[in-house]
Design a protein around this nucleic acid. Structure first.
Lengths: 150, 150
DNA sequence: TATCAATGCATCGACGTCTATGTAACCTCC
DNA sequence: GGAGGTTACATAGACGTCGATGCATTGATA
């Protein structure tokens, strides 16, 4: 339980945060690389598998990237046979995304890999620290919008 | 003070972290953009101003980027007249970096901008939460190395 | 001194990311 | 039912990032 200590400046917190974020990104890329996929690609496929059918913009929102970025990544995933695009009947501007059979299988593998990587990374924390961390993170992003681009 | 609650999975923490990291990056880019600079460029110049003379690899380590990335960014900053490269007399492979007069002036401005942006971002947190957050972040990166590339 | 490994930096190719913009479809409202 | 704004997606251009690799220099060793 934290008690009074030398106070930290916001800039120090930002530095530390940015550093940690890079460590996290690197860790996930390494672990998922062992499964033959990058973190962003796996996140997209996993999210589609979980929420299909899902529109492109919803997907971008769900994983926290700009719509244009999602469009490009999805394009590659469709070319690779992991996702399917289908124009919505209700709104022909919309694209509904689904996983292919291959995509679904890989999504399972990658989800497991992602979870294992997360467990490795957060193993040093107690459950209470993890819970505290999530609280703090949610507080920080409480009133933030999503990336532009749509 | 956090007490027992529904426990979070490591993957949830990772998701939340990654989301928050993006918000943070966007926020800093916006604020520093008002000063006419990107976050990575400002971080390099500020770090050189603080630690000059500094070798390229040390600088990369200090700001948490790969050596090759630092090399490219520094190259642009030298072209823009903010930094100076100087071959070390002791070891002619090494490059010593310093800020120019212009770079020093901008570093001051950008440091202030960076600090203000950080304060805005972390304003929702109590000092105790900030301290807790830093503790947790340091715990997470305690045994992590820096990016490869050198 | 000659050789070979290690070190410091630069460069390359690929990737993910953003904002800004273009295009097609939809919706509103007269 | 047509005009004009809005929405959904695609595309373009720029940037930061990485890992891998190449080149020059240094150091260690025989």
């Amino acid at each position: 339980m934290p008690h009074a200590r030398k106070s930290v400046t916001a800039a120090q917190v930002a530095d530390e945060f940015s550093r940690t974020a890079k460590v996290l990104v690197r860790h996930f890329n390494e672990r998922l690389g062992e499964h033959g996929v990058s973190t962003p690609r796996s996140r997209l496929v996993v999210e589609v598998a979980r929420s299909q059918p899902i529109r492109l913009t919803e997907l971008a929102l769900a994983v926290g990237i700009a719509q244009g970025t999602a469009s490009t990544l999805v394009d590659a995933l469709v070319r690779d046979g992991l996702l399917e695009r289908q124009t919505s009947a209700d709104d022909r501007r919309s694209v509904l995304l689904r996983v292919t059979a291959q995509g679904a299988a890989l999504a399972q593998d990658w989800t497991a890999g992602y979870e294992r990587a997360a467990e490795e990374l957060f193993r040093p924390l107690t459950p209470e620290q993890m819970s505290t961390l999530v609280d703090i993170l949610r507080t920080l992003t409480a009133d933030e919008a999503s990336p532009a681009g749509g």
